[in-house]
């Protein structure tokens, strides 16, 4: 890190897959990848929204096979490196090996915040393959800080070079982010990252808090394209951190251009804080449940917010999209 204080990892082409209902085309990926690379982004992620192997009836089938999308993106990179997301239980070591063959250089192995031990083999494989290897603790709001530290230490012991606090539900508030990042900085020797969602309009504030507490990997997406209300907005981050005196290594005009001339053109709808996404942050529900909940609520003619509150009460975790239909059916039958 010579010319910048932290890495901004752009997740438009992965978290954005949720908002795109997993229908990214090669052309969209090509142009976005080219823009990110030219703007000076060092790492960006390309995968199904639920990671490698996520194409399914449960989460939505990919329109174009993610391996083709990774390959397409890799062909556009002069300096940027491509990350892939791998959620053990959904994707496998075999999927990772295939992704590396077509150009992935970084893997982020994601588990629920209390389940880090399922990722041991995948993190070890990442290191063996020479990838930048990251551990991603999802739904970080659901565990007390001591638990988060314990699980982060597991990731570090398996070989993760970076461990992320992942606010999958967009439920954390800035002081909670500060507490979590600070605890990990104190207890671990690897780098610490933060991934935010904007369900409570806190993504940017949380990301600033993370950096101030010592996070050196932060995630964003162009025009905030991502699950729920979307992620921290990459181009806004570049502007804000510059104003704060940090070096981002990213060209503001160029990142604005790819956000507005490329991504905004194919976004199915703006990433707003709507009643439902707000309720996800408020009830602590996994952000990618949004569109599935919308569909089920419509089918059963019930209020989406009731479904989301119930899912929060049931302590649903990432990946349990099948629960949404059942909860909606049960509410409708009451």
């Amino acid at each position: 890190m010579t010319n910048h204080n932290f890495e901004i990892v752009d997740v438009t082409l992965r978290d954005g897959s949720h908002s795109m209902r997993h229908a990214f085309t090669k052309e969209q990926v090509r142009k976005t990848a080219r823009g990110l690379d030219q703007a000076g982004v060092n790492y960006f992620e390309v995968s199904h929204g639920d990671g490698l192997g996520g194409s399914s009836m449960q989460y939505g089938k990919s329109k174009v096979n993610e391996l083709e999308l990774i390959e397409t993106a890799a062909a556009e990179c002069s300096q940027a490196k491509i990350s892939v997301l791998l959620i053990p239980g959904i994707g496998t070591k075999k999927d990772l090996t295939e992704a590396v063959k077509v150009g992935a250089n970084m893997v982020r192995v994601a588990t629920h915040v209390t389940e880090a031990d399922v990722a041991k083999q995948h993190i070890e494989l990442g290191r063996e393959l020479g990838l930048k290897t990251v551990g991603f603790l999802m739904m970080a709001h659901m565990a007390p800080i001591e638990k988060l530290v314990e699980q982060a230490k597991l990731f570090e012991s398996y070989g993760a070079e970076v461990v992320y606090v992942t606010d999958s539900a967009g439920a954390l508030l800035p002081h909670e982010v500060t507490e979590r990042i600070t605890a990990l900085k104190n207890e671990l020797s690897c780098e610490i990252g933060f991934h935010g969602h904007n369900n409570l309009s806190m993504a940017m504030a949380n990301t600033v808090a993370a950096v101030q507490a010592g996070a050196t990997y932060i995630d964003g997406s162009l025009r905030a394209l991502g699950a729920g209300s979307g992620n921290t907005q990459t181009e806004v981050m570049v502007a804000i951190f510059e104003k704060m005196g940090y070096q981002t290594g990213i060209d503001l005009y160029k990142i604005l251009d790819v956000a507005n001339d490329v991504v905004a053109k194919f976004m199915p709808r703006p990433q707003e804080v709507t009643g439902s996404s707000l309720m996800m942050g408020y009830s602590g529900v996994y952000s990618s449940f949004l569109l599935h909940t919308e569909k089920a609520a419509k089918q059963f003619k019930i209020d989406e917010r009731d479904v989301l509150v119930e899912l929060g009460k049931m302590q649903a975790v990432g990946g349990q999209e099948d629960l949404i239909y059942e909860v909606a059916a049960n509410i409708a039958n009451k």
């Binding site: 009836m57 629920h112 049931m314 975790v317």
Partner: peptide
Amino acid sequence: GKAIIILNPAEPPVLMRDTIHAT
């Protein structure tokens, strides 16, 4: 065929749930 497994740490522990999606 495809299979997905999810671990849920909720307390009290949740019963095993299985969803089958078929075409």
